[in-house]
């Protein structure tokens, strides 16, 4: 599903984001990416959605070599990958429903399709009852669930979540992780970037540890080792 071959990323200012990373993530896997701050986890996530390009190496997603992806093709890649990012917020002037619908609207989906899909996505994240609220009228955990609902509307094969529990307490964190697990149970590949030791240890799934741009460990049913 996701394959990185000798991928390195050096930012224009000379900062090294990643060095010589080789990875293969199979369809349906739930992979946690851990590591200390500034080691290149977000860099990795951004390269998966072509937000950043690798300086060296090759990235193939679902058989599609996106290493040299053209600008005009990026939207098609992004419709196949659900994105849940730290700084990727909801629009405050739109309701929960409208925020989720927005992702379909701007991709040209027909109204009929939007009316069918949005309630489904809200049901998956358990927010049907709060569809008409504005983001400020729901909790942080609920907001993050709306973001996940939004990432689901294109029925992506992959979800990339960069610290989705960053600002949440343990209860809300657990809810989000459970939600991601359920989504993974439907067959969606999940790449979860996190700092949270408990989350990783409890998940008992594959863990990739990055340190200073290098993959230093890659374990099935791993633990948070740092």
């Amino acid at each position: 599903m996701i394959r990185l071959k000798n991928v390195s990323k050096t930012y224009p200012n000379g900062t090294v984001g990643l060095q010589n990373v080789n990875l293969h993530i199979r369809p349906g896997e739930f992979v946690s990416v851990v590591g200390q701050s500034g080691t290149g986890k977000t860099t990795l996530a951004k390269m998966l959605i072509a937000e950043e390009r690798p300086s060296h190496g090759q990235i193939v997603i679902g058989g599609w070599d996106i290493t040299e992806i053209r600008r005009a093709e990026i939207p098609y890649l992004r419709r196949q990958i659900g994105v849940v990012f730290q700084d990727f917020k909801l629009l405050p002037k739109k309701t929960v429903y409208e925020n989720v619908a927005f992702a379909l609207e701007v991709c040209g989906a027909e109204s009929r399709k939007i009316k069918a899909i949005v309630p489904q996505a809200l049901k998956i994240v358990g927010l049907t009852a709060k569809a008409d609220r504005y983001p400020r009228q729901i909790s942080g955990g609920e907001q993050q669930r709306v973001v996940i609902a939004r990432s689901l509307v294109h029925r992506p094969k992959i979800i990339v979540a960069d610290e989705p529990t960053g600002n949440l307490d343990s209860l809300n964190t657990r809810e989000i992780i459970d939600l991601l697990k359920r989504i993974n149970d439907f067959g969606t590949t999940v790449v979860l970037v996190t700092h949270n030791k408990d989350v990783v240890n409890e998940l008992q799934r594959r863990v990739i540890t990055i340190d200073r741009g290098l993959v230093v460990s890659d374990q099935e049913e791993g633990k948070y080792v740092l």
Partner: peptide, 10 residues
């Protein structure tokens, strides 16, 4: 920013 990340075309 959201439009871009959810796959809206240029």
């Amino acid at each position: 920013g959201i439009m871009r990340l959810v796959g809206a075309s240029d």
